[in-house]
Design a binder for these strands. Structure first.
Length: 501
RNA sequence: GGUCGGGUGGCCGAGUGGCUAGGCAGAGCUCUGCAAAAGCUCCCACAGCGGUUCGAAUCCGCUCUCGACCUCCA
């Protein structure tokens, strides 16, 4: 079955066919590194990481470009601080690039924590000022942009007039029509510079206090908010590429403007498949700076946010996100994360046990129905991924399989109930889906060898105590280990195992 | 105001005409010195009101209600 993706442009699921297989070009809008990443930022990067992994698994040679927006209104951080001294301190102590560097590091650290694969290319906006200026020059030359008082604006009305005739009006992606926008767009600064209020900036003249500024044919200034993605996508992926991804909130105006700019420059719709992830909400409301309801990733990982009762590992957060399909909103709460944490633990323990087994292919199934059921569940993993990355259903099936694994382990089912070949198949596929595609990894603590030895020793002492019916001692060991997050499990066969919380 | 998308059991969350979603929490049972873990069973939900249909959470209409975008935003 082929992979189907929901294309925002056509508003339907479409079979994914690359322009030039086996090569696939994918561009995903990265973060603005003017502040620390929050939970909301995690969703697109995890979603598109899974898409990237899945495309690679399918044999495509993927060039995954994810930018870093490090140009723009970076004086905002200073402005937010009301205390003038604090503002000054920030301004004096942090160079803009220092700020950018700091948050870029934090962002990279978070991506690594989430086990997101690094993109093939991670271009920065400030590193591509030249390309952006060239693009703007081209748009002006073609008559779709104009200079006004040191700034350059894109002529949306003209674009719409011309490209409506080519079935690509402005608003094609977001489903807006220009008349509505003319009525509803709010008044902004420098409105008088624009021919029309729907026009957007390609280049902005830098006011005296603006720190980040570059020389351009139109004077000192900085690039507009939309041109960087167009310039970098074109440079690294060509005039038309396969997938353009990002959060739903970028659909308009950001992606709409990208389409307009790139189409004028390159005479082609920049991307064929536009994929948008939905928002993470908190109490039903989008998580965002303006709502003052963000939970930063660092707060999540150390449990310091007031609404959290504990810290959550990056893998728990990843799993939480994968338990839903990317196009739906996902409502965040401490309770929901707790559920994910427990579920992930149960899943991974079953998985790790299965992974460590070796199966021989020569045993046949004594329970044919069960054998068939297992194979079906395993086969469905790929089908669900193909259906617009339905990781929620993939995870659901993993939880159908997990009890079967535990039943084999605890001998609730016969060792030969399911054939060795089927178990072997399941083992291989679970490694593929859990680790390589969903990107879930087993969290290893430090000093595993020594810790393991110490725990084994305690287990032995406890067993001796138990055999003497000295339950006071055995319970003391078990309970105190439990308090430290080490759980002792007396298995059916008399063996004792443990797991780390 | 305009455009668009939702309302699923205590919580999170799949599901576009008939077949168990899944997880967490809760209840019972098995196992166990007692627990825990694990397994099994139960908890039969689809905002409301109409309509279409043999049959609707799923299609249509209306009502209520929540949200997103329209300004930077993942």
């Amino acid at each position: 079955m082929p992979l189907k993706l929901y294309n925002s442009l056509t508003r339907q699921k479409e079979v994914f066919e690359p322009i030039n297989a086996p090569y696939v070009g994918m561009y995903v809008c990265g973060p603005t590194v003017s502040g620390e990443s929050h939970l909301g930022h995690a969703r697109p990067f995890i979603t598109f990481d899974v898409l990237y992994r899945y495309l690679v698994h399918q044999g495509y040679k993927v060039r995954y470009v994810r930018n870093i927006t490090d140009a723009g209104h970076f004086e905002e951080e200073g402005k937010q601080a009301e205390d003038k001294i604090a503002t000054k301190a920030i301004l004096e102590k942090l160079e803009p690039m220092e700020l950018v560097q700091k948050y870029t590091h934090l962002y990279h650290w978070a991506m690594e924590q989430f086990n997101n694969l690094p993109p093939s290319i991670e271009p920065t906006a400030t590193g591509h000022i030249v390309e952006q200026i060239e693009m703007i020059k081209k748009i002006i030359a073609d008559g779709f942009a104009y200079e006004a008082n040191g700034s350059v604006y894109f002529d949306v009305i003209k674009y719409n007039d011309v490209y409506s005739k080519k079935n690509q009006p402005y608003g094609i992606l977001s489903g807006r029509n220009i008349e509505d926008q003319l009525e509803t767009t709010r008044e902004l600064d420098n409105q008088d510079e624009k021919k029309n209020k729907v026009d957007f900036a390609l280049w902005k003249k830098a006011p005296a206090e603006h720190i980040m500024r570059w020389q351009s044919p139109w004077g000192e200034g900085f690039p507009g908010w939309h041109i960087e993605c167009s310039a970098m996508a074109t440079k690294y992926l060509g005039k038309q590429f396969d997938i353009h991804g990002g959060g739903m909130d970028l659909q308009f105006p950001h992606h709409e403007c990208e389409i307009a700019q790139s189409t004028v420059c390159n005479h082609e719709m920049p991307a064929r498949y536009w994929v948008h992830n939905n928002m993470i909400t908190i109490n039903g409301r989008k998580m965002g700076k303006s709502y003052n309801n963000v939970v930063k990733l660092s707060e999540l990982f150390d449990g310091s946010h007031p609404i959290l009762t504990q810290a959550y590992s990056p893998m728990t957060v990843r799993f939480f996100i994968l338990q839903s399909q990317y196009r739906g909103t996902l409502d965040f709460s401490n309770e929901a994360l707790q559920a994910s944490e427990k579920a992930l633990k149960r899943l991974m323990e079953a998985y790790e046990w299965l992974k460590a087994q070796s199966f021989t292919n020569n045993t046949s199934a004594t329970d044919a129905a069960l054998d068939k059921q297992l194979v079906t569940w395993v086969n469905e993993l790929g089908e669900f991924m193909d259906d617009d990355l339905n990781t929620a259903k993939v995870v659901a099936n993993l939880f159908e399989i997990a009890p079967l694994i535990n039943s084999l382990k605890d001998k609730h089912i016969a060792a030969d109930a399911i054939s060795g070949a089927s178990w072997s198949f399941a083992q291989k596929q679970l490694i593929l889906f859990i680790e390589n595609i969903l990107g879930l990894k087993v969290v290893d603590g430090a000093n595993q060898v020594q810790l393991h030895g110490v725990i084994q020793l305690l287990i032995e002492i406890r067993s001796d105590a138990k055999s003497r019916k000295d339950f006071a001692t055995s319970d003391k060991i078990r309970n105190q280990l439990m308090d430290m997050g080490i759980q002792i499990k007396d298995e059916k066969d008399g063996e004792v195992s443990y797991s780390l919380a």
